[in-house]
Design a protein around this nucleic acid. Structure first.
Lengths: 206, 206
DNA sequence: CCACGGATATTGACGGTGTCAATATTGGAT
DNA sequence: ATCCAATATTGACACCGTCAATATCCGTGG
């Protein structure tokens, strides 16, 4: 027993969870450059190499955060879609645009890692992050194709191609906002309006 | 004299230029994680702190690379615009889309740093990088406004807003390509086609 | 009930990194 | 020819990621 006065036990109990949460906290509150495994461990009153029992290395930890981000993203978008399914048409498109950009802004510590993580380049297609993320993209394509079959959107549209462009648009605007290139956050509503107009124009069946 | 057999002089001559070029080379050929000031200096046969005479710190060096990227970007886009000014209409939009994405792909070591660099967040609006970059964006807005006055594009379009969306779209698609999210580089032409269709639809005066 | 094995945590060590301070060398203006 | 500002160097320090060897703990089968 190292120190009987200390209430901390040798085994943490749920260190993996604690690591993920504390990492997200550091990223959100202090930025990526402030994240080191050693500080992380110290904050959790744990030795510097303890995290290595749960993550192969720092990159794997960041990858896990990214994956968690995709799960949160999926949940947020599903909720938004349910919330405004009845709207239909341009307003529904606006709601989705808005939900995407809001998610990115409210979860930047996750969003920053979701793309740009090296797992995407990895040759191994089994890679957990890429599998999760690609599944989510594919689901988007399927959802639109279903609406297309129902005659709710332009039947001539190449949906797969459209989704690539539409995802790119939302991702790009989010990145420019997060990176401080677009600073006027007061005009986000207008920005989303213009975006939604453009995207809906592609979907509009009539 | 440190070593009379060595032909290297105490003063390098044009170390600043050499640092910028070697940094770009390392980034391109070995990736950002392989870049350290010490290795950089070693490659140039110079002591580890020599670069500090030319750049305040590592971040400033990366910022300088980013700024160089914006200058290259400006040149590339100007050339593309001159090359296809006569096309007009959708084809001209396609050419611009294509030029943007090609630039990003061919200059990823610069492109990666142009956005995402911390200089953007910097409160100081005098910051060289942000000034350069915002000037380039502004020029884009002016160019479109001129075409609008000439009746070449939709007079009802809010150009400033449109440019934000259009820049976002191109940036987002480029990032997804660079980050390996979109892997099918064979279909880039089609991707650009869809993008150009969508963007031109906004500009089309009638 | 206990012993034991796998999961989990620890300390020690190593090489690498950014950057400051103090010092040395140089080339060009006076 | 001399002095100064620009440029380069060595030394030092505090961090960092990660490996190897070791310690501790908990659950499970005997």
């Amino acid at each position: 027993m190292p120190n009987s006065l200390q209430q901390t036990k040798y085994h943490h109990g749920d260190l993996k969870r604690a690591i993920l949460d504390e990492t997200a906290r550091i990223l959100r509150e202090e930025g990526e450059s402030a994240l080191s495994l050693r500080r992380l461990a110290a904050n959790l009153n744990v030795s510097r190499t303890a995290p290595y029992n749960h993550f192969k290395n720092k990159e794997a930890l960041l990858s896990a955060i990214a994956e968690e981000g995709f799960l949160r993203y999926e949940a947020a978008m599903k909720a938004a879609q349910k919330r405004c399914r009845k709207l239909g048409g341009r307003d529904q498109t606006y709601a989705v645009v808005r939900a995407y950009i809001d998610f990115a802004r409210k979860n930047r510590e996750y969003y920053d890692l979701m793309y740009g993580s090296k797992s995407w380049h990895c040759a191994d297609p089994q890679e957990s992050l890429a599998v999760t993320a690609r599944g989510i993209l594919r689901a988007d394509v399927e959802r639109l194709k279903r609406r297309q079959t129902l005659g709710k959107i332009n039947p001539n549209l190449d949906v797969s191609r459209y989704v690539q462009v539409y995802w790119g648009t939302l991702h790009g605007i989010s990145r420019l906002l997060l990176d401080g290139v677009y600073t006027d956050s007061a005009s986000i509503k207008k920005l989303c309006d213009t975006t939604a107009d453009m995207l809906w124009q592609q979907l509009d069946p009539g």
